[in-house]
Design a protein around this nucleic acid. Sequence first.
DNA 1: GATGCTGCGCAGAAA
DNA 2: GCGCAGCATC
Length: 738
Amino acid sequence: MNLDGLNVAQKEAVLSVEGPILVVAGAGSGKTRVLTHRIAHLIESYDIFPSSIMAITFTNKAANEMKSRIEALVGPVTSQMWVGTFHSLCVRILRRDGHHIGYSRDFVIYDTADQKALIKTCFKALNLDEKQTPIKTFQYKISGCKNDMVTPEAYEINFHKDPRERDFIKLYKMYQDKLKSNQALDFDDLLIKTIELFKKYPEVLETYQKKFKYIHVDEYQDTNKAQYMFVRMLSAKHRNLFVVGDGDQSIYKWRGADIRNILDFEKDYPGAKIVKLEQNYRSTQNILDLANGVIKKNPGRRDKNLWTDAEAGEKIRYFQAYDEKDEARFIVNQIKREIREGNFNQTDFAILYRTNAQSRVLEEALNIEAIPYKVVGGLKFYERKEIKDLMAYFKLMVNGYDDVSFLRVINEPKRSIGDKTIERLNAHALERGTSLLEACATVHEIDGIGGKTAEAIAEFYKIITGLKAKLDTEYAGNIFDELVSGIKIIESYEKERSEEADGRIDNIYELKTVIEEFEKRQDHPGLRDFLAETTLKSDQDNIAEVEDGVLLMTLHASKGLEFPSVFLVGLEQNLFPSFRAQDDMEELEEERRLCYVGITRAEKLLYVTHAKNRNHFGRFEPRMPSVFLNEMDQKLIEVMGERSLAAALKDAKPKEISVFDIKTPKKNPYFANVTQKEAPVVEKTEQTFAPGDKVTHRVFGAGMVVTVDKVNNTLTIVFDAHGIKKLDPAIAPIKVIG
DNA sequence: GATGCTGCGCAGAAA
DNA sequence: GCGCAGCATC
């Protein structure tokens, strides 16, 4: 194994073989290189079977890249390795061994839309009012529970006394029951159920423990409790756990990631070896200095300072726009200029923003100048209605218990089947204890469904069961054709005679191509695997090898990627950092890490922009510059645009002082302004809080005080809809109720 | 039961 | 500025 190309720290990491190892890998420090070389080294120098190696990555794209890079080092042995995301590896385990806990190999995976639909049917059954509690609130809450491994039973034990929790307890239970009877798992279940399997069947766990002697986890800082548990259980026997991560890039707290997993690694795995990678191979020194300066403002992090051999490079370019359109125009002009001057080509640019909604204006500006671009994320191919419909048909063929998919397509295309019919069908199914699809078999026995409606249902049933019988013998492409002609979906869209419908028809044909390609690629093709793979696709997975244009994406989606030239846009208070961080210090720290992630995506050139005004909900509003701009070292920054810094300052109203006027921001000066303006002063008068107090927060709604920390001046509050927050009572818009 | 219109609420990030 | 829910109409 040739390790000449590695630096000292990287070599040390690669050559560490036994025991728990944490590699603290700063942005751009070559962690993928370390991971791939370490695995190659295991195989080549230690004769470790590839089949006893597991590597968990954040995206499928990262997994594939890792596989091909290892292959380049040691040859084609990687098919034996288990490389994938937490979710895909769990699917693999559950397909094999899920039967122990009552799941057939044909289980389906519910995405957030399916999940929402199922919660909706639970709402109906429980007579809950959507207006009282939006479905989304409960959806988040269920996911939050699962990320923390809180079962419905455990939740009930803890909260049954609280009348406000009664609805949720009932809903959570019913939701889980229905998932089970539908033979479906949501994203979070994939992990939860795998852990449940391991706990209930230690002999199953043991076979996996024995098999996987070496386990690797990438992006360890973003693991949640369930993922932590999964890794911990699997690695318990051999204790050869190699994790790579960077606490400064932890940006997924909101989906349960627990930064303590990486901070406490030595405690969890005594005797762990720690290797720090601080040399950066991606960015110029100026970009790194800017990033280091910003992230330093976060307390309680592992000290780490990125450095590079590379030159200082260009300064960071700052632009203050009049509004979001002006910001977009500036960006497009810069891109045009850089291309014209031959410094970059169009594939070198990425525009990073905080919220998806910001992409629209940017797209319009790019369109005007005919610059090709691709938006990563947003409405994905598999989220389009016509595609989801067809996928639901497939799910139903694979798994007839899937009532959610049944309800999605029973009247799609239109078969004149409405609420009444579905109610009757549902009652019939309930009575017989069958799935909705099975209930269709005896549709002629149902009172109130007759004539054309009964015929339509019988026909539907015939198509599904007919195709189901061919699943294992017929090519997926042929099944697709039979389905499409059977349900007359093309004809139905043709009838609409609209451009939109034509687009949908194109997408349907596109889906066929995708299925056929999948079939060619896989060793054991099957719709089951196709469905799982597409459901578990991430935004990053959808970026093609060679994109021929500017990439637009959220900061979250940009994690792990790099671009020669980056625009970090919309650096405004209450946008980036998000309005939800305005008086929540932990949230603000996470936003700051997000800012750090954004800055460190850039290789050569970085732009930071903000607008003085922005349309929000269709209203034109003035905007304050982001606190993060204050935190950037202005020596590294060059001001762009015809509007000089001096002019920008003169323009600004007295309160809108330029960000560069503020020397050492202790607390964000804009917080005070914003909260005073929006929250009546009454709410801010001196209040005392005690544990147990019911409070209400302007943004987070109702909650209860759990702890009062007078030393750090922090309240810990559990909010009904937003989970646990640590707030500063002096600035948070909260008041005691009841 | 299907279709089309209006108005409300809203958008933080996702496998 | 957009999407969805609810309502009116065919």
